[in-house]
Amino acid sequence: MNAKIDFSKISFLIVDGDKISAQVVYDTLAYLGASHIQRVKTPNDAFDVLRREQIDIVVCEWRLRGMDGLEFLDVMRNSTNSPNRFIPVIMLTAHSEMKYVTTARDLGITEFLAKPFNAKALYSRLVSVIARPRRFINTGTYFGPDRRRRQVQFDGPDRREL
């Protein structure tokens, strides 16, 4: 028997100033059965919603008005005012170059989805966030999901212990 995901049990917040992009994500989530989906255009509105309501997953665009998606993520992960430091954040962006992926990863992104995206790619990120949660790492310089996704045999010194 195949494992399933009941999306009606999960609440989503879409943070995207682009009407069409937000609509595509909204339609996809609604089709999957999610009934609690909020849409906002700016990070400030997102913080208001996050402080007011129980949100399980944030789907956020990088390019936003005022504070950009990265600053939003930084506040979420590292600020003492953060409504939820552990909340999974899926970052959508048309900046797909490696340097952007690395920057987002090092600020504690849960999943990264390059635009233009298709339904399969979005679904796989949702599955990953829900069904394969990662442990969190807290060091002096990083707070976020474990960036080591694969366990590879390594004989050198463990840098986390240095």
Binding site: K4, I5, D6, F7, P133, F136, T139, R160, E161
Partner: peptide, 30 residues
């Protein structure tokens, strides 16, 4: 040995417990 300066926090499984099942919803592998 220097004290570890890293804290490893177990994965939050709340979402998985709530949403993953064998009855209702969409297959993990569509």
């Amino acid at each position: 040995k220097k004290k570890k300066n890293v804290q490893i926090i177990p994965a939050q499984t709340d979402l998985k417990r709530r949403a993953v099942n064998f009855v209702k919803g969409f297959d993990i592998n569509l």
